[in-house]
């Protein structure tokens, strides 16, 4: 069954700056189905990251509508967004953002602390094993390589069993070999867990591994042919 998990219409994000309003997103309509692997691509400043942040309920929407798992979130404020985020969405970032004082295992367990969920160490270990870090669960982030750190971040993002995984340039800080490994891992998770995956990337090669690419330019979705990336 191909459920629509993310649906937006006329999604706008306008930053009010001293120099005047800046429309980072200027009316974006997207529909993402469950289990889809979608890449968002576009030049710098095209609004990819803004779109990802809005889809991930990290930021408030200026106008337009957004449904996450069938729930309208466009009117929600920070304290409401956090609940939707907690329940449905996992994040990974370019810089991994692990808590440096916590071990790999503790980092993976951290989301449970905020979700007030009971401790579930076996799941955390399972996830670390799943991302191939069974031997490194008690290492602090600084003892791990970039690729390993990103894998810990992926395990952490999966800890609360989200339906959607959002990734912002997940391979941006990695060499090509590690990039491939991470991308393949994400692809596997997408396939095996039927996880909806939205990935922002610059890397065309990786983008081409996605089911579908959304091209953005100046805050709007454009057809593939019009994207400057092809010129």
């Amino acid at each position: 069954m191909l459920n629509i998990v993310i649906k937006s219409q006329g999604l706008k994000k306008i930053y009010r700056l001293p120099a005047g309003d800046l429309a980072a997103l200027n009316g974006v309509d997207v529909e993402i189905k469950q289990g889809e692997f979608v890449a968002i691509m576009g030049p710098s400043g095209s609004g990819k990251t803004t779109l990802l942040d809005l889809l991930g309920c990290l930021d408030e929407i200026t106008s337009g509508s957004l449904e996450i798992m069938g729930k309208e979130v466009s009117e929600a404020r920070e304290n409401k967004l956090v609940l939707i985020r907690r329940k449905n969405i996992g994040f990974i970032f370019q810089e991994f953002f692990l808590i440096p004082t916590l071990t790999a295992l503790e980092n993976v367990e951290l989301p449970l602390l905020f979700d007030k969920l009971p401790e579930n160490r076996s799941r955390a270990i399972e996830l670390l094993e799943r991302v191939g870090l069974a031997a490194r669960i008690n290492h602090l982030p600084k003892k791990l390589s970039g690729g390993e750190q990103q894998r810990v971040a992926i395990a952490r993002a999966l800890m609360t069993s989200p339906k959607i995984l959002l990734a912002d340039e997940p391979t941006g800080n990695l060499d090509s070999k590690n990039s491939k490994l991470i991308f393949n891992l994400l692809r596997e998770l997408n396939k095996e867990e039927n996880l909806t995956m939205v990935v922002v990337t610059h890397n065309m090669e990786l983008g081409n591994l996605a089911d579908r690419i959304i091209f953005l330019q100046d805050g709007k979705i454009i057809p593939k042919e019009e994207s400057s990336l092809y010129h």
């Binding site: 990290l58 994040f91 970032f93 953002f97 905020f114």
Partner: peptide, 16 residues
């Protein structure tokens, strides 16, 4: 700052 941001991203509320 970033760490706090990431905690929020992975589900920490203001209260947390």
């Amino acid at each position: 700052t970033k760490e706090i941001g990431i905690m929020k991203a992975i589900g920490a509320s203001r209260k947390d």
